[in-house]
Amino acid sequence: MPNLVRIAPGALIIGKPLPWTVYDADGNVLLTQGYVIQTDVQLEQLFERGLFYPRRSDTPEPEPEPEEDIRPRNPFSDYPELLRTLEVTLQSVQNQSPDAQRRVIGLANLVARCCREAPDPCLALVHLYSVEPTAYEQTLFYAIICYFTAQQLGMDDKRVLVLLGAALTANLALLPILDKLNQSRRRLSDDQRAIIRKHPILSVAALERAGIDNRLLLKIVSQHHEQPDGSGYPEGLSGRDILPEARMLALAERYTAMITRRAYRDRFSITQARSELAEASHGLHDRSIHDALLKAITAYPPGSLVRLANGEVAVVTHRASGLQGTQAQAIMSPTGNRYIGAFRRDCSRPEYEIQQVEVPEMLPSMDYGQLWSFDRH
């Protein structure tokens, strides 16, 4: 089947839902998006059978201008294409393609539209796929979190799009080594530390070479590792010298890093990550960005697994808003058995009150989009 390639080592992660559907050599679907590999034996069998997945082109050809897509956004079915588009977009910047700026703007608009039309499912992507995300997945998560933080602060749409463009490109210079760094148990080498500290400047230089000249975007990228107390890099800026958008991106990166499993540490629970961010805001002259991110995500964000008062395990589907409490779908019984299907739960009712956030190392296999009543077909 054309446009399919053999699965590379490391592409499948135990305990994490597949971000794309897997095919065999004849193009038959073998594993659907959402399936979770449970054991090393399963991994070995899959690699031995020579499974394939849709190619992400290393040398993308210029694409014709697409017709306007007016379909309602489904973040779960859009997810593989979002990741592919992100990779192609960043390659266009690295290759200094004439259409690089158009691609960055187009992707920022697409991410914004997904977040606007399907806000809770977009946040669910961040929390369901955060077990061990790739560099491209992390980058997409930064943009999603930035969008909701900015919305909470009432930022105007044009400025939000610039922020998303920055979030999607800020770590351009780190991409070649980011997955390796996340999977390494060794201490950083001097060369790695140097790249990390220089990557905001290197990313800005790459963007400028590609003809991306939005001064606000470039400034966000250059400042996204500066800290209010002056301890950041590369310039050691502090306080009001740091753009609010740069601080939003820094917090989005920090939150994503905490809820992500790394080779050298376990994942933080959402509760722990929120507590860390809240504590980090103490003593700041302006806590509004920390508060906005925490309020946007909420204590029980969509995609998080929670234990209910009746003992069930459920996936949160909708944040509390207005008169409606947190909504969830129960997927496991109090005895730990997987339900066939899922059952809607209103967590404002005493019997379905959320008791705690679960931090599973192994997510259950299922089509998560169905929890939001999305139909892939």
Rank of each mutant, 00 (worst) to 15 (best):
L216C: 10
A205D: 08
I196R: 05
R186I: 05
R215C: 14
N214W: 09
L178T: 02
A173C: 10
S238T: 14
S231H: 02
G154N: 13
D179G: 05
S203V: 05
G165C: 02
R185C: 11
R215N: 15
S184L: 03
I212A: 00
E226I: 10
Y136D: 15
L188T: 07
L163T: 08
V204W: 03
N182I: 15
Q192A: 10
I242P: 03
H225S: 10
D190H: 08
L207H: 08
D156F: 03
L237M: 04
F141K: 08
I242F: 02
L181Y: 04
L207Y: 02
A173S: 07
S238Q: 12
R193K: 12
G239T: 07
S189M: 06
P228Q: 10
G236H: 08
D229M: 02
H225A: 09
D213Q: 14
P234C: 10
G232I: 09
A194Y: 07
Y136W: 13
L216R: 06
E245H: 03
I212F: 00
L172H: 08
A210F: 01
L140V: 06
I242W: 00
H224E: 11
S238W: 01
L207F: 01
V162W: 06
D179P: 01
A173V: 08
Y142M: 02
L178E: 15
K180D: 14
A194S: 10
L188E: 13
D156T: 12
D241C: 15
L174V: 05
P244Y: 05
V204I: 01
L175H: 12
A166R: 02
L202W: 04
Q223G: 00
I201H: 11
G239S: 04
G239F: 04
V160K: 12
I177L: 06
E137S: 12
G165V: 09
A205T: 04
K219R: 11
L153N: 07
V204K: 01
S222V: 09
R209A: 04
D157Y: 09
S231W: 00
I177G: 09
A210M: 03
E226P: 08
